[in-house]
Design a protein around this nucleic acid. Structure first.
Length: 234
DNA sequence: CATGGTGGTATT
DNA sequence: AATACCAC
């Protein structure tokens, strides 16, 4: 650590099934039913993909990014809605304006996710957890939506932590818990490890984060630079 | 049959 | 500029 550098505490906020949650907010009659936002299914013949689905739809096996025709086969009785970006962006701005207040450094990551560096606002992870609960309550009361939050010493860990308990989750990973937390997770959870990289790592017999790096940082960097992956490809 | 749209980084 | 990843 360089002189003057402090340990950081990062909060990652991820809205729960954002697009469908916004739709349910203005259509209470949809609550409790499977709701799918995405391309027009056209009775099973539609093209395009599922953008977001709520948890009732996920019970039928529907997932984000899935072809809408497959979603139709799995759950023809769901409420199908087109993507209303203007509306979601308006709600997103309301949420981001709330979150911004709590951060020294604020980074919007997508329409429904953001990183908050709260290092100088809190003195401990306990305080960060209290702040996170306050944030969740404010978004629920003022916007009417729930979110999941992860707290960690860096953005990678905070983002993975927010995904750990969903929906309406709050997961705290302290510095001394990072290795224990990450080790058993599939490599796919890491940022920058998508489908292609996952397949290449699988050929090397690497499925978990622990296997990937064995927590030798130089090994982690080396693998992620992808030179090893390209050389071992096919 | 069965894969959108947009924006980002890295490499060549 | 093109390619190939990645993210939501």
């Amino acid at each position: 650590m360089r002189i003057g550098e402090r340990k950081r505490i990062i909060i990652h906020v991820d809205m729960d099934h954002f697009f469908t949650a916004v739709e349910e907010r203005r259509h209470p009659e949809f609550r409790g039913k499977p709701v799918i936002v995405g391309a027009d299914p056209k009775g099973g013949k539609g093209r395009g993909v599922v953008s977001t689905c709520n948890y009732e739809a996920r019970k039928f096996g529907v997932k984000s990014g899935m072809p809408i025709s497959r979603a139709w086969k799995l759950c023809p009785d769901a409420v199908y809605l087109p993507v209303n970006y203007e509306l979601y962006e308006k709600v997103s701005r309301e949420i981001m304006n709330i979150l911004r207040k709590y951060a020294d450094k604020f980074e919007q990551w997508s329409i429904d996710e953001a990183f908050l560096d709260v290092s100088s606002r809190v003195k401990s992870y306990e305080e960060a957890e209290i702040l996170a609960k306050k944030i969740k309550r404010e978004i629920l009361e003022r916007v009417g939506l729930s979110c999941s939050i992860g707290i960690g010493p860096n953005k990678l860990v905070a983002k993975i932590a927010s995904d750990y308990h969903k929906p309406d989750g709050l997961t705290v990973v302290r510095e001394n818990e990072v290795e224990k937390f990450l080790s058993p997770l599939p490599v796919r959870k890491l940022l920058w490890v998508g489908w292609k990289t996952e397949q290449k790592l699988k050929k090397l017999g690497i499925k978990t984060v622990g296997e990937l790096a064995n927590f030798d940082p130089s090994m982690l960097i080396e693998v992620l630079t992808k030179h090893i992956l390209q050389n071992s490809n096919s």
